[in-house]
Design a protein around this nucleic acid. Structure first.
Lengths: 122, 122
DNA sequence: CCGAATCCCCGCGGATACTG
DNA sequence: CAGTATCCGCGGGGATTCGG
């Protein structure tokens, strides 16, 4: 079994985990949104637009579990819950931005390649 | 609907596509392997270890479609097919490496956070 | 307002068998 | 060797309902 870090199995699985998280569309959107400061559940949901409550909850739990996001409950009525990026979460944003910058810079080439490929495939 | 690039819907979807590709475990492994030069189908399959033919084919087709990998068929008997990273593919490797470097550097913190979270959750 | 719980569907991905 | 074709199980994720 090949590994990402010079054949270290444990590190490999760990890195795959992080990459999978970045590959998760919703998780990236949430991190991006929280960059400008904390938001509450409903604000996140409205901002994203078409995410189900279930998926937003699942995404936030995952980010919280990995120590990327903090969850703060205010025992008011009605209840209020704020989500905020941790230092770790803000650190993750940097390489993610590098990747999305690369995507923006090369998306035309990728789309061209797709058109050519699809055209040749009759 | 929120978008990643200052509310440009088209670019947003495109970036999500690229992130999804990076989130694809097999795709990243293949790109990593092809960094050292071209490989044929069976070499890739043996190197990765436990990937099915179906998934390797699907992964390679996807990478080829996006212009990240070239597919070269030698009409010999038995047939031989080489896969090689394009310039675009090699370019992708750089931000991906930045991300995996971040993962390696912070995996301990993430694992600690997970243990704490799982412990508190009885 | 912020979820947890339940039902349900569809597509990913493995296993297997067959071609050029 | 390098695929394609087919069947199939399981889990991701939407819709809906209920609780604190």
């Amino acid at each position: 079994m090949l590994t990402l870090s010079h054949h270290n199995p444990t590190a490999c699985r760990a890195i795959s985990d992080v990459l999978a998280r970045v590959g998760d569309k919703w998780a990236v959107l949430v991190v991006e949104l929280l960059c400008n400061g904390p938001l509450r559940f409903t604000e996140l949901q409205r901002s994203i637009g078409n995410i189900s409550q279930k998926m937003l909850t699942t995404t936030l739990r995952g980010l919280e579990r990995d120590g990327l996001v903090t969850r703060t409950v205010y025992p008011t009525i009605p209840p209020r819950v704020d989500y905020e990026l941790t230092t770790l979460g803000r650190g993750l944003h940097e390489p993610v931005k590098a990747l999305s910058d690369w995507a923006r810079a090369n998306i035309d080439r990728i789309n061209d390649a797709r058109r050519v490929f699809d055209a040749e495939r009759d």
